[in-house]
Design a protein around this nucleic acid. Sequence first.
DNA 1: GTACACCCTCTACCTGCTAGAGGTTCAAAG
DNA 2: CTTTGAACCTCTAGCAGGTAGAGGGTGTAC
Lengths: 142, 142
Amino acid sequence: MLTIGTLGKKTGTKVQTIRYYEQIGLMPEPERTEGGQRRYGHAELDRLAFIRHSRQLGFSLEAIRELLDLSDDPDRPCHEADSIARRQLKQIEQRMERLEALRTELERMVHECSGGNTSDCRVLEVLRDHSECLTDHEDIGA
Amino acid sequence: MLTIGTLGKKTGTKVQTIRYYEQIGLMPEPERTEGGQRRYGHAELDRLAFIRHSRQLGFSLEAIRELLDLSDDPDRPCHEADSIARRQLKQIEQRMERLEALRTELERMVHECSGGNTSDCRVLEVLRDHSECLTDHEDIGA
DNA sequence: GTACACCCTCTACCTGCTAGAGGTTCAAAG
DNA sequence: CTTTGAACCTCTAGCAGGTAGAGGGTGTAC
């Protein structure tokens, strides 16, 4: 039986975060001591490790919820999990493309900076004048 | 004199967002009609365009605030703006590296999926077992 | 002179946590 | 057995960067 702190250390998760996962229903309500403290077993450790690893791979908590549901039911077809993963992969590829475009533009900006005063700063000029912007990224990839 | 809606259309910004920028002090308080509706001129249009373009390049609102301050004062040295841009470039490069690692891992995951049931799904298995994870990304690049 | 699109403020919500206040429990040391 | 002190508890509020909706007022074109 692990305390919440130990569970946190084993999985690299802050205590608050574990309680938060419980609150939103990603983690189950664990057993409690007489005094009301949480105690965890192996199942919970595995589940939290799954969640953390998925988060590291960039899955949203909603996607993780779906993956956990699938994982809980061994008879459902694998392609559901596969398609969640592919969706995630696609999102990452899109973000990378956008970042690539941003990088190009930023590089151009800083390389053209001559080093005078802000009145003739290339960086500010480029930001001011959108028409110099070649790419048409709609929104930042956050 | 532009209404807030027109300003929004010209800059690709939602009306609520413009009011939000005003609230946090990024946009100035504009003139009002007798009835209390906002009316904007050229200066505000330019300023909002600057903000939006900077956002598209991934600058934080705080960074944009700094850039706007610099932009308002033509005598300050250019290298301040330049260093903000370089900082931004660095962040983007870091995010890209992290995403690249994630992509590799996700690709491996989906390519190994055989297509059976979730009980022997590669995707879920990989997520379950962190030890198969080769990279050591500490946190997702958001 | 009225229809109706647009504007106003205010509050709450989103994701994915994190921090702090103020109080309780557990386990080990004396 | 008692005491210390780290770790636990709940609750509320905050971060970025907005978005959505309620409930009501305005501006303008026909």
